[in-house]
Design a protein around this nucleic acid. Structure first.
Lengths: 326, 326
DNA sequence: TTGTAAGCGTTATCAT
DNA sequence: ATGATAACGCTTACAA
């Protein structure tokens, strides 16, 4: 591949002049600049950013660490972050942790090895606490999003989980449901704890008895099992902290031919709108969270919390007249 | 950040010895190695791979260029490729083109600037041909997957689109449908052309009249419009080259209260199994395609084509007794 | 087994 | 406005 030294040799000038010409320095004659640009194009020159980054002591890569890229929430966060970062001249290196602590640690170390300009992180469920994160990053600016450890410094981008869950539960009450349980999710993650609090507060404020709570993973199977228990406990509605567990709950409703049972999920995965009856869901705003995370990085990853609002998507599953058949 | 020079100074030895010790060279005394490792850990040293890559003249980054990461197909390809590449010591830099030619060109140039070890590419719909790709890459090994330009050299990973579409169409015939049309997709992409050919061949082989063909984008809206035309033309089934267009077709069926109409989509997006009636779909095998693309890169991106089989997922939408209501 | 020194391609600091 | 040169941190002949 062509280097600036070769361009300099071909033109009989100094490589420093070529470097200045190509990086738009004002300290170079117009005529020289044009000659350099012509020769660079002729030789098919492309700057070696590896060398450039080494010399400049900084990198234009921002690392994004997420549990899994194929989850819609995370891929949309990445999309939002990428839009802002590319605009600002950064490139994005994506790492998946598959919810495992060891993979998360390795990803952070890899990013440090690359001396990336910053890291946007949503931690793995397998990470019980965040004590490994700062040592692994060794001073690289950190922005956490969605799943955050509040004890760590840096920027945090979160949803208003409390308000959202409050709203979702309130909505079920307004529809006429009277005994509302919850599929509460992973209790070692603050986001889920906050959703549980919002759910409880909504019931308290309505003077209702709190329903049964099923803290567990939020996958289809656990939702199915928990819903069977909820039915046995006399529930007529569930607020689920995830969409997949809500889907499992619907499996149980269908199996038992239940009528008048309300479901609201969380995350607004695209299948919620496509299934029939369609599922009401508390939508996160991943694209905006990604944008905010990127903006927080560009702003220096200062300590602070940005709250991105959630939005309740009301569909058929929370309508009291919806029939669960087959 | 700590460098090997600092470790060397702290131990009163040469930086070359430190480098050898840390990279596992056999030409260093066990005792020295232990001392170096202890000091490195003490100082929190992490190798600067930017410097390392520059010196070695190669990079351990593989670029993956896809239209959009949030499409399930592509995120699963990335997952499969990542699994193989991480295992082999590579890291993955992901770029999205959003189906635009200019973004694709820029992504390829960026990857070249990083002197990445290789590029795995599924080209944008906006790229009418592949003439820009090799010049932009300047000699970096190329593996194309799913959407490939056969005129380019390098490895190609594709699905057996012809056989898959043949099978899907044959299945509709076996179910008793008699006038089968197709939502054929983008005709500037070879994958869709091959699906159309498979569809046609299945009808020919059955001695059936070919049904109407609707080549267009494969989004929900165009599927809806095309299905209305297909109904007017007397069709009783559609093979769709995409799942979202098939979903649009179902919208039209429901709207018109049609009975006895068969639908098979393509890609096996997760919503196809979750909706009700569930949608039959011709499944691609994205994780395996990603693995094969990564393996092809590791094998030197030699010229050649790897075909990954598709699998027909038979569900309710292609059952002749399924009723489309509401 | 360890040290010396050059060099990857670029940019920054001098000097001219 | 341009040139000369050192330096970023690492790896690798070559030498000792």
């Amino acid at each position: 591949m062509t280097t600036i030294t070769e361009i300099a040799a071909a033109l009989g000038i100094n490589q420093a002049t070529v470097s200045r010409a190509l990086s738009g320095s004002p300290r170079v004659k117009e005529e020289t600049r044009r000659a350099v640009e012509r020769k660079a194009a002729e030789l098919g020159y492309e700057r070696n950013v590896v060398a450039s980054n080494l010399r400049k002591g900084r990198s234009d890569i921002v690392g994004i660490v997420v549990p899994r890229i194929h989850r819609e929430f995370f891929s949309n966060v990445i999309g939002g972050a990428e839009a802002v970062l590319n605009e600002a001249g950064y490139n994005v290196l994506i790492c998946q942790t598959h919810e495992r602590f060891d993979a998360e640690l390795k990803a952070l170390q890899t990013l440090r090895n690359y001396r990336v300009a910053g890291v946007l992180l949503s931690h793995a469920i397998g990470s019980a606490d965040g004590s490994h994160i700062l040592p692994a990053l060794g001073g690289i600016p950190l922005v956490q999003f969605d799943r955050v450890f509040s004890e760590l410094p840096g920027s945090k981008i979160v949803s208003n989980n409390f308000d959202g869950a409050y709203l979702a539960t309130r909505h079920l009450l307004d529809q006429g449901f009277r005994r509302i349980g919850t599929l509460a999710g992973y209790m070692n993650s603050e986001a889920y704890v906050q959703r549980l609090e919002g759910y409880r507060q909504a019931l308290r404020d309505a003077g209702m008895q709190p329903g049964p709570e099923y803290p567990d993973t939020i996958v289809r199977e656990t939702g199915y099992e928990a819903c069977k228990k909820a039915l046995a406990a006399g529930c007529d509605a569930l607020y689920s902290a995830g969409d997949f567990s809500a889907l499992g709950a619907i499996d149980a409703l269908r199996e038992n031919g239940v009528q008048r049972f309300g479901i609201v999920g969380t995350a607004n995965e695209s299948f919620t709108a496509l299934m029939s009856p369609s599922m009401s869901s508390l939508a996160l705003n991943p694209y905006e969270m990604g944008r905010q995370a990127a903006l927080a990085f560009l702003g220096g990853a200062q300590d602070g919390v940005v709250v991105v609002p959630m939005e309740l998507k009301i569909r058929e599953s929370s309508n009291i007249n919806t029939i669960w058949q087959k």
